[in-house]
Simulated scan of single mutants.
Amino acid sequence: MEQKVANIAGAKASSDARIEKMSEIHRFSHAELDSLKILYPSGANDLRLKVFRDLRTRVYASAPGKNFTCMVTSVVPDGGCTYVVNNLAAAIALDKTRTSLVVDCNFYAPSADSLIVTDTDVGLTDYLDSADMGVESIVYASGIPRVRVIPAGGNTEGATERLSSMRMHAFLDELKTRYSDRYILIDAPAVGEYAADTRIMASLCDFVLLVVPYGKVTEAQIRSAVDAIGEKRLVGMVFNHM
């Protein structure tokens, strides 16, 4: 028993050390984070920090003791989905024993490049089109410590076919199982305009966060979005004022 406990403790220490040594090519300055509207511990906007820490806690409660794959979508385009994804990823990464991975699956309006601090040659669509490409070739460093990013890629046509492919299934499984301390956040297209794509993505993820742009959608639109996702998959709604 003592040996087993020692092994577990050793494995955790090794994981913590790996996370701490993750290569950070360039860290965003506070000014850059403010420009991107991303939280940081000493940020002037303490309310945003509090809100996303609370959201992080609520999402953790849906998968106690293990990592997860969470899709984030908005009721309508430009509803604040990327804002929520980026800040939730940053909130998770505030814990030095955890990492987060943002996957840009919004092929219609990709945005993850704004987080990446290196050149990007390939992304998700390139990976899905090439059986010889490994996941590690499309994961990039961000300007936020312990946050990694997978961009949408070059050829973003044929989104529905790619998202429903067996390679996409295997891709998400590998992301989740490769590192137990990594939490995957999927930036998905708006459910109001791309219901087929979001249904596919929702079925592949553990659960879904729905972003509701405050004062910009009707109750009927919200209900339609919830129906498209499925209530069993829905972990919560985030009302966005940004």
Rank of each mutant, 00 (worst) to 15 (best):
M1F: 13
Q3M: 12
Q3T: 10
K4V: 12
I8E: 15
A9H: 14
G10R: 12
G10Y: 06
A11I: 09
S14C: 01
S14G: 02
R18K: 15
I19H: 08
K21D: 15
M22Y: 13
M22D: 13
E24T: 11
F28V: 02
H30V: 06
A31W: 08
E32K: 12
P41N: 12
P41A: 11
S42P: 00
G43T: 07
D46G: 08
D46Y: 09
R48H: 14
T57D: 15
T57G: 12
R58V: 04
Y60V: 01
S62Q: 15
S62Y: 05
S62W: 02
P64F: 09
F68W: 13
F68R: 08
T73A: 09
V75D: 01
D78Q: 13
G79K: 00
G80V: 00
C81L: 02
Y83Q: 03
Y83R: 02
V84R: 03
V84G: 02
V85S: 08
N86C: 09
A91Y: 06
A91V: 04
A91C: 09
A91E: 07
L94R: 13
T97Q: 15
T97D: 14
T99A: 10
N106Y: 06
Y108T: 05
A109Y: 05
P110I: 03
A112M: 09
S114M: 10
S114H: 08
S114C: 09
S114D: 08
T118W: 07
D119R: 13
T120S: 13
V122S: 13
L128R: 03
S130W: 04
A131M: 10
E136R: 14
E136C: 07
I138R: 01
I138N: 06
Y140N: 01
S142E: 04
I150E: 00
I150T: 04
P151N: 11
P151F: 04
A152H: 02
A152F: 01
A152I: 01
G153K: 05
G153N: 06
N155E: 14
N155W: 04
T156D: 00
E157K: 11
T160W: 05
E161H: 10
E161A: 12
R162I: 02
R162A: 05
M166Q: 14
M166R: 14
R167F: 05
M168R: 04
H169A: 10
H169F: 15
L172M: 14
E174P: 00
L175T: 05
K176M: 11
R178K: 15
Y179A: 11
Y183F: 15
I184T: 14
I184F: 05
D187V: 02
A188M: 08
A188I: 02
P189R: 06
P189Q: 11
G192K: 03
E193T: 12
Y194P: 01
A195V: 09
T198C: 12
R199Q: 15
I200N: 03
S203R: 12
L204A: 09
L204S: 07
L204K: 13
C205A: 15
F207L: 03
L209K: 02
V212L: 09
V212A: 06
V212F: 00
E219N: 14
A220Y: 10
Q221G: 07
R223E: 14
R223M: 07
D227S: 13
D227G: 00
D227T: 13
I229N: 06
G230I: 08
L234K: 09
M237N: 04
M237S: 11
V238Y: 04
F239C: 08
